[in-house]
Design a binder for these strands. Sequence first.
DNA 1: TTGTACGCGTTATCAG
DNA 2: CTGATAACGCGTACAA
Lengths: 355, 355
Amino acid sequence: MTEHPPAKARRGRPRQAEVARLAGVSQTTVSLVLGGNKQGIVLHPDTRARVLEAAKELGYVPDPAARRLAAARNNLLGVFSFTATFPTAVEHSYYPFLVGVEQEAAVHGYDLVLFTGSSSGGAQAGTSGALERVRLADGCLFLGRHVPADELRRLVEHGYPAVHIGRRDELEGLAWVGADYVEASAEVVRRLAELGHRRVVLVREDDDAPASTDRERGVREALDAAGLDATDAVVRAADPATDITADWLRGRLTEGVTAFVAEETDTGAAWRALLAAVEDAGLDAPADLSLALLGSPPADLAERPEPTGFDIPRAELGAAAVRALTTLLATGETESPLVACAFRPGNTAGPAPAP
Amino acid sequence: MTEHPPAKARRGRPRQAEVARLAGVSQTTVSLVLGGNKQGIVLHPDTRARVLEAAKELGYVPDPAARRLAAARNNLLGVFSFTATFPTAVEHSYYPFLVGVEQEAAVHGYDLVLFTGSSSGGAQAGTSGALERVRLADGCLFLGRHVPADELRRLVEHGYPAVHIGRRDELEGLAWVGADYVEASAEVVRRLAELGHRRVVLVREDDDAPASTDRERGVREALDAAGLDATDAVVRAADPATDITADWLRGRLTEGVTAFVAEETDTGAAWRALLAAVEDAGLDAPADLSLALLGSPPADLAERPEPTGFDIPRAELGAAAVRALTTLLATGETESPLVACAFRPGNTAGPAPAP
DNA sequence: TTGTACGCGTTATCAG
DNA sequence: CTGATAACGCGTACAA
């Protein structure tokens, strides 16, 4: 009993020392050869070859934790996501971003660590300090609304390389990549104005995430620019399903509102409520009124009708985030690019009905 | 220059030793208190309190890398996927499996490592020895057709804990979780038989993956069981787009075939070709003939018409795979469960037309 | 009940 | 060119 029973998980996991023994050299040499020889030390090609062969023979792979502990890097990028609900449908989750993240990570030679219990509301979610887990990776991507600001700030202040997917100005020094919701929302309203709509209402949920406020800003800016009345132009619905009713809709219509714009959220509640209200009121879009969605529709109502609005370039955002993170890792430069959203014509908006 | 410039990421992070000094105890005691005291060692409540206070005071958070290094395990589960094409659409990728994988991994306290350059066709894909990378994780999930058998065998022979998503009997000792394609395909054919179809043709691609052969087996078994003619019941189309034409279709119809079944693949080529041939021939399903798809349709033609067939329970498969892997990790027991597929009525199959 | 000593796997320095 | 040796931060037998 002189040896602790080794954890099953490690059985057969070769270390540098074993590679060294097999190659007949020291462990240091193995580290040198396998580490790319940053020190510029000259090694005998034969030695090098023997080490490489031994490593391949044994299937040696460096332990990421040890690598990291020794203040090196492990070619691992973290992904920590805070989506409100568990992704039963892939489209509602962060996977669309992951497509771009994964592709770009591959380009740069990084593998990905998905920190669970974040999106999935698993055991560790909400636990204070849960974010610290990401330190296992060289750097980390954060995404979703409601990423805990204080924990994130701690990481950033300690110099941990982090990039947030989604604009995040409040956190000094945090790099982020964002969709240009302001411009995209403004464009939607501009189109509506061009279609003759003079009064437009934005239905947003009761949520102060940047993604929401940006949309509102874009809407307001476009209204101003078009010289339209912005009075009561924004409605905050704590519970869209009960607040946005057929009656409410009729009320607004009699006030002269001809177009309704919903923000996109995790649940799509605002858009859903709007569609339901229109149907309940026996109205039709775009004949009787125009509708637009500031984002992509939830999967279950993606078609019939296809919402006028814009698409969030999720994969590009993911890729841009990885680029930002890798340059942060390599140069220490913090960049925060804004990615444009493409306008989606759709078929829920049309010319404003004659008064 | 007596000190190495510490990595930015680590600067200023309090360690257990500092907590210990502040609390006037040893580092061990700190570890004990903060580690939840698994050993059941009795500590003086005051000591405990002092340690906790000191930890909070300093904002101590354990270093995950060190923790994992000491524990001789990662709590990392790998995911290595071999899908034929890059997932431009999440639905075509391995993400639907990942939903279940992620959820179940969270339950068991594991994080996930996504090995890039596998699904994404990145730089390292196809490289010999690329699979060895997975050793970084405590265990790994493999998925997709065409996972290189020899490399996988090496890993398994070395005792590396691996679970393949998809049946894989050829590899002695490899654990896998599979969808019961045989039974699901048989059920589809049984339904067709019940609808009066006497001659059924399976269109499969030129591919000998288990997922393909299982479907064929199910089809043949059901044909036999129903006493139907299995002559020329299976067509292998190297290139469905050019092989499965309107002319071909008419030919088979005149031979008395009334139902066509396509296997599902990454590309959905067989099903796509079948739909196109029917349209080109000016025919209609299910009026003139019946169609069924052994799997889920590609996203771009998920509706209109919804294919009769079955759904692959991808999330459940992912979850089952994680369970298999964690028990393999914990007990060394290899299990290979088969998960049932749900029949999907759809609307492309109907009663066989009268002869 | 608390402290000592060592190991986990890797990197990095420095003397042969 | 190579081989000891010391961190890195934490867990844990074993001793006090």
